[in-house]
Amino acid sequence: TRVETATETAWISLVTALHLVLGLSAVLGLL
């Protein structure tokens, strides 16, 4: 259904953003 697709997209966006933040923090930590 469309609701499931929207929820899945939201989760993917959330996980991606989380990985970006963690990756950025790791890079800044190494610097």
Results as ranks from 00 to 15, higher is better:
28 L>Y: 12
22 L>S: 15
15 V>L: 13
24 L>W: 01
22 L>P: 05
6 A>H: 05
9 T>Q: 13
25 S>L: 12
31 L>R: 13
9 T>E: 00
28 L>Q: 13
12 I>C: 13
25 S>A: 01
31 L>H: 02
15 V>S: 03
20 L>E: 10
3 V>M: 09
18 L>E: 12
2 R>G: 11
20 L>Y: 10
22 L>V: 11
21 V>T: 06
23 G>A: 06
22 L>R: 02
31 L>S: 13
15 V>M: 06
2 R>T: 09
30 L>R: 09
2 R>A: 11
24 L>F: 01
20 L>I: 07
21 V>L: 14
16 T>G: 02
19 H>M: 00
24 L>M: 13
6 A>S: 06
20 L>D: 05
21 V>K: 12
12 I>S: 09
11 W>H: 07
29 G>R: 10
7 T>V: 12
9 T>K: 02
14 L>V: 03
5 T>S: 10
22 L>G: 13
19 H>E: 04
23 G>D: 06
5 T>Q: 09
9 T>W: 05
5 T>R: 13
1 T>F: 14
14 L>M: 03
23 G>E: 04
29 G>I: 07
9 T>D: 04
1 T>S: 11
12 I>M: 06
17 A>F: 06
31 L>P: 05
27 V>P: 01
12 I>Q: 02
20 L>T: 08
11 W>T: 08
24 L>T: 10
26 A>R: 04
24 L>C: 10
30 L>G: 13
30 L>K: 01
29 G>N: 08
3 V>R: 09
24 L>V: 10
18 L>R: 02
15 V>A: 04
12 I>T: 05
6 A>F: 02
7 T>L: 10
19 H>C: 15
26 A>W: 00
27 V>R: 08
14 L>C: 02
16 T>R: 11
25 S>Y: 11
6 A>Q: 14
13 S>Q: 00
13 S>C: 15
6 A>L: 01
18 L>W: 15
18 L>V: 14
25 S>F: 13
18 L>Y: 03
25 S>G: 09
5 T>K: 02
15 V>D: 00
28 L>M: 15
24 L>H: 10
12 I>L: 12
5 T>E: 11
23 G>R: 10
4 E>R: 06
29 G>C: 08
28 L>T: 02
14 L>I: 11
8 E>L: 00
16 T>H: 02
15 V>R: 10
9 T>V: 02
14 L>G: 07
29 G>Q: 00
18 L>P: 05
6 A>M: 15
13 S>H: 01
1 T>P: 08
17 A>M: 07
11 W>L: 12
6 A>G: 08
29 G>P: 09
3 V>F: 06
